[in-house]
């Protein structure tokens, strides 16, 4: 599926890319394969990624040969300095990069053993299975109810109004929002506070019953209290979903994830149990980052 240019994103990405390209060479030699435990046993892996490269228009490479597995019902966090490719990699997992003109992904990405780039695979279906929550809360200009009902309606998941009501209520409940909004389901979603909006977006994603939820810095636009609520929510959601979260906050990664991946200049430098990454980083670059020498 080819999709039109989305100029803003492209430029933003290109800018980030240019900013980092100068330093790439000097680091490249220090990165030889990923340190830590990037691979899981075959049956534990939800996502199976081998040799993933991402190129933007003009053949600028954003991701270099990333190999990793993402486990079932785990929260995996991806950290690294800005422009390191963590968001780009995340967007590979539900083929959101398809929406950027000139963006090309190579390598193997398998979801439950099926190649997501296979001709038979459909991005619409893939995105229904792998939901995404974005950095900035982006509720649609519709009512709270319609926001949550958006996905089920698109995909025909509810056969009648009662079923739909049910899905909406359950999703809002899971997202911890139902109590706050149950009396104003018809109010516009854009009228909620920032934290509520982000939980609405999570509810919207859950409503489709995906298998994996990708979160791209979901709390960076929120205040600490709202952040705490979302973090608790993520922990609860782990029971039913696999969650990949990109974050710029190391504390957040430490609090909520089981495994942590450290990206640097488009390379996956280290992937290990969260505790190990933060207490005993194996790679010099990881250590420099978590001790605050850069980033």
């Amino acid at each position: 599926m080819t999709e039109a240019t989305i100029d803003m994103t492209t430029t933003a990405v290109l800018k980030a890319n240019t900013a980092t390209s100068g330093g790439r060479e000097e680091f490249a030699h220090t990165i030889s394969g990923t340190i830590g435990k990037p691979y899981l046993d075959g049956k534990d892996a939800k996502f199976f990624c081998r040799g993933v490269n991402v190129f933007y228009a003009g053949e600028k490479q954003a991701i270099f040969d990333v190999n990793m597995d993402i486990g079932r019902n785990e929260v995996i966090s991806m950290i690294g300095p800005s422009g390191c490719g963590k968001s780009t990699f995340l967007r590979c997992l539900n083929r959101m990069n398809d929406t950027i003109a000139g963006c090309r992904v190579t390598g193997d990405i398998k979801l439950d053993g099926e190649d997501i780039h296979d001709k038979e695979q459909d991005p619409v279906l893939l995105r229904a299975r792998v939901g995404m929550v974005f950095q900035k809360p982006n509720p649609f200009p519709k009512s709270i109810y319609d926001n949550v009902a958006y996905g089920p309606r698109l995909h025909g998941l509810a056969s009648n109004r009662a079923e739909l009501d049910d899905i909406v209520e359950q999703s809002l409940t899971k997202a911890g929002l139902f109590k706050e909004v149950k009396d104003r389901l018809q109010a516009p979603g854009t009228g909620l506070s920032g934290g509520q909006q982000q939980r609405l977006c999570i509810a919207r994603t859950i409503a489709v019953s995906p298998e994996v939820i990708l979160m791209d810095e979901p709390t960076s636009a929120l205040d600490p209290i709202a952040t705490a609520t979302i973090e608790e929510l993520i922990d609860e959601l782990r029971a039913s979903f696999t969650i990949c979260i990109v974050t710029h906050s190391m504390q957040q990664a430490a609090r909520i994830s089981q495994r942590t991946a450290y990206f640097h200049m488009g390379y996956l430098v280290e992937l290990n149990d969260t505790k190990t990454v933060f207490t005993n980083p194996q790679h010099q670059l990881t250590e420099n980052y978590i001790t605050g020498r850069f980033g």
């Binding site: 459909d122 619409v124 279906l125 229904a128 698109l154 995909h155 025909g156 998941l157 019953s209 995906p210």
Partner: peptide, 16 residues
């Protein structure tokens, strides 16, 4: 394969 997958697949032809 989950029910979601099946139901989504059923709608795809029409949607495309």
């Amino acid at each position: 394969m989950s029910t979601t997958t099946e139901r989504v697949k059923a709608t795809l032809g029409k949607r495309y």
